[in-house]
Amino acid sequence: MIQDKTPPVIEFRSAALTYPGPPPVPALLPCDLTVRRGEYVTIVGPSGSGKSTFLNIAGLLDTPTDGTYLLDGIDTTRIKDKERTILRGSRIGFVFQAFHLLAHRSASENVELAMIYQRVPRSQRRARARTALLRVGLGHRLDALPTRLSGGERQRVAIARALVTDPSLLLCDEPTGNLDTATAESVLELLDQLHGDGATIVAITHDPQVAARGQRTVSIRDGRLTDTLAEQVTA
C-alpha cells in the first residue's frame, strides 16, 4: 500500500497560547491536532472555551506561545511576520459570520479584493472572481451590491472570496450564525459540495446541526481540546 506523503494541512504539536498578565491567562492548553487534506472538521465548545484562540492560531492571526503549528508542513512559529502574512493570504480562505463585505463594492469586486495581496494582475481578477461566483451559484449576481443581496447570497460571496485564491484551508467561523434555518441549510449544502470537490474545511460552530456535517468533531472546553474521532479510535 502506498502511503500518502503529503503533509497535513493543519498540524498542532503541543500548541498552546497563554496571554500575558498579570496574571497570565492560558487560553489554549497544549494540544495535538492533525487535519489532513480533504477533511471536513468541525470545532465546538461553549463561549469562552478557547474556540476563538484556536481560530486565531489556525488562521495565523496569533502565534502559539508554546509548541508548534505547521501549515502545509511549514513551521509557522519560525517565520517572520511578513512571511506569515503572505502565507495566510495564499493558503487560508476565511469565511466569517458577519460576511465582512464592502457595501459600496459589487459582489465581483468584493471577491477581487482577495487577489490584490497575491498580486494577481488586474486583467485576470475579474475572470477569476466570475469563476468563483459561478462556483457558489452566483453567476447572475456579479454586479450586485451587498445591500441588494440576501443573507445567504452575501455568505456565498464571502465563500467565493475565500475560494478565489485556491487556498489549502477553508476556515469558517460560525458560517451560518446570521442566517435563518432554510438559508443556513443552503450554505451548509454548498460547504458539503465544496468538501466533495476536495476542499479542506474547518468550521467553528456552536450549532450541533452544523457540527454534525463534518467528518469528525473536535471539542474545546476550558482551553482543553478533545478530538472525538481520536478518542473513538483509541477506545
Results as ranks from 00 to 15, higher is better:
Y69V: 04
R161F: 06
P208V: 12
L55P: 02
R130K: 15
P8W: 00
L71M: 08
G196F: 07
D222Y: 09
V9Q: 02
K80R: 14
L70G: 06
R213V: 08
K80H: 15
A162W: 02
V157I: 08
G59N: 09
L170Y: 00
V157H: 02
L179K: 01
S106M: 14
S186K: 15
G50T: 09
A27V: 06
A132K: 00
T76G: 05
I43H: 01
L71R: 03
D173R: 12
A16R: 10
A230L: 11
V202H: 00
T176Q: 06
R78V: 14
P46K: 13
A144G: 10
L229H: 05
D227I: 13
A15F: 04
C172G: 07
L33N: 03
S106G: 09
D173H: 04
S52G: 08
S106H: 05
P208Q: 06
A230F: 02
V210D: 01
Y19A: 15
I57F: 02
G223L: 06
Q155L: 09
L33H: 01
S52Q: 04
G73L: 03
P46A: 15
L102S: 11
S47C: 10
V233F: 04
L134Y: 14
G73P: 02
R84F: 03
F12V: 10
T68P: 01
E109A: 15
L113G: 06
Q118G: 15
T234G: 10
D222N: 08
D222S: 13
T65L: 07
L142H: 09
N56Q: 12
L138N: 01
E112I: 11
R119Q: 09
T42P: 01
A16D: 07
V35P: 00
L55V: 08
M1G: 10
A103S: 15
T226S: 11
V111L: 03
E174Q: 06
R213L: 04
T200D: 05
R84W: 03
G198S: 09
L142W: 03
G50I: 10
S168E: 02
T147N: 13
T34Y: 01
T176H: 03
V157W: 02
N56C: 08
E39G: 03
V9Y: 00
A182Y: 12
L29I: 10
R88F: 05
V233Y: 07
G67H: 04
D66K: 08
A162L: 08
A144R: 12
V120D: 05
L71I: 07
I116N: 11
A16I: 13
